[in-house]
């Protein structure tokens, strides 16, 4: 069973993602900011992280860099409201496996995660 870490400061977004991925049979972990996320990553080493960018304390870019440096197997999917081309480029340049923008399509995000984990 694959472990998925959801990182976002918006409770309702976390709620929707949690519902979606649990239904698909994944083990779901939740963090509300970057700091919490990094702690969870160290402890649980998730297979995939769905990562917001703008968060209190530690932002998504930093978390991504931390993951790509230490946990090569862990996939990172950015999920952000920042939808400019240069934001996308920056995310991918940091080693993210996918960059999705908010608002997202539930079907799409599930499909992408499945693809990355197979």
């Amino acid at each position: 069973m694959n472990k998925i870490l959801l990182v976002d400061d918006e409770p309702n977004i976390l709620l929707s993602l949690d519902f979606l991925f649990k239904k698909e049979g994944y083990q779901v972990l939740i963090a509300r900011d970057g700091e919490e996320a990094m702690a969870l990553i160290r402890d649980e080493i998730p297979d995939l992280i769905i990562l917001d960018i703008m968060m209190p304390k530690v932002d998504g870019y930093e978390v991504c860099a931390f993951v790509k440096e230490n946990y090569l197997k862990t996939k990172v999917v950015f999920l952000s409201a920042k939808s400019k081309e240069k934001d996308l480029q920056k995310g991918l340049a940091l080693g993210a496996d996918k960059y999705l923008t908010k608002p997202f399509s539930t079907k799409e995000i599930v499909a992408e995660v499945k693809k990355l984990l197979n």
Partner: peptide, 13 residues
């Protein structure tokens, strides 16, 4: 985008 994201996600669910 933040509220819209939630709205869309739950609407789809």
């Amino acid at each position: 985008k933040t509220p819209i994201t939630s709205i869309r996600a739950f609407s789809e669910i």
